[in-house]
Write a protein that binds this DNA or RNA. Structure first.
Lengths: 193, 193
DNA sequence: TATGAAAACGAACGTTCGTACTTTTTAGTG
DNA sequence: CACTAAAAAGTACGAACGTTCGTTTTCATA
């Protein structure tokens, strides 16, 4: 790999950490340069605009996400098992990111800010929801689940968001027991015996 | 009312609109001055710091919220009816704010930014969750509901967050039918016959 | 090893923002 | 009406940020 591509990957790795811990806007070029031990302009040259930096950070986050939760479950069957394992990997990934999801955070940050960043965030979240929905649909097709796939995913994703939010607020056991309990209930309600 | 207090209320009203539509950080003093037709320093004099402005906007939002969803349900009994009406008012208020909640947005914006603003946001959300929990507990005491009050509130609030988030993403019917359907299911699962 | 391109640097610019200071205008009161 | 305190305006400053430009250093390769 070229030197340039190599350092760029390093930059993106720490940039993702910073952006996840703070936000895509608080991810400042000068600050990122300091953290990575580079000069502002030297770092800037890799992206040529802050917007591009933000986009590339999101793309980088996406590759990490895919490696962490899509790939490890790729060959799992049947669909219900795959779904459950995916949720586990999803939570592990979420935890590895310091208990926050940059896509969810960015969706709040950019929801009123038209542009390519917002479009990308929305697209990624749509893809993820569609992916989950597809798995549930397949589980239904296989006869191991029943109900409306989209409604199930709606409730599943809601629990994820609720867990993230209420854990921050300090709601009792929001992060662990409450989510798993609700998830168990959700699954069993839509499971075929 | 003094002239000062009067214009301050006007400022806060439009400030809440701006902050809800964008964010508490994007709520800029100069911009707010332009919108309200004042000078930057004239407006600044009412708050003496941006942090105070943010705090007062949140307090103002709180008073609106109380007027909109706490007061109208204050005398309703039994607790289950009060809970259902509260949820209705809650959604109405949410819609009146342009389908976004400044407290939720601020919780994401300030989650990593220690200070009085973050503390206030967290406190308000805690109070709201405790308020909901209290109502559910009372409904349980009255024999019209059963289950773990906190778990029920956890799932209820999760659905609210999911509805807000997924409506933005464009998930089918997230905002209306899906929330109400899930809510109905949640209630009926914990209702005593 | 020599060379040209890529990468990194240093300094500076334009803009935006919060804030401080001073002055002018407004409004309430004796 | 006069007077004073509050409210609003005008101006300015310093810091932070994204970005540009010219230069220097590093690296891959011939």
């Amino acid at each position: 790999m070229n030197k340039g591509k190599h350092t760029k990957q390093q930059i993106l790795a720490t940039a993702l950490n910073v952006a996840t811990a703070t936000s895509l806007n608080d991810l400042t070029i000068g600050g990122l340069a300091t953290v990575t031990g580079m000069s502002k302009s030297g770092l800037f040259g890799h992206f040529n605009s802050k917007e591009n930096l933000q986009l590339e950070v999101l793309e980088y986050a996406q590759t990490i996400f895919i490696e962490s939760v899509i790939v490890p479950t790729n060959q799992v069957k049947p669909a219900l098992d795959k779904l459950l394992l995916t949720i586990e990997c999803w939570l592990d990934w979420y935890q590895s990111q310091g208990n926050s999801c940059i896509f969810v955070a960015a969706s709040v940050e950019f929801d009123d800010q038209p542009g390519v960043v917002r479009d990308l965030v929305k697209k990624r979240l749509q893809k993820w929801l569609a992916y989950l929905t597809g798995m549930v649909e397949q589980a239904i097709d296989e006869g191991s689940m029943r109900g409306d796939a989209k409604q199930i995913v709606f409730e599943l994703y809601s629990l994820y968001l609720g867990s993230e939010h209420m854990a921050w607020v300090g709601f009792e056991d929001a992060q662990h027991s409450r989510f798993k309990l609700a998830l168990k209930s959700l699954i069993s309600r839509h499971q075929h015996n």
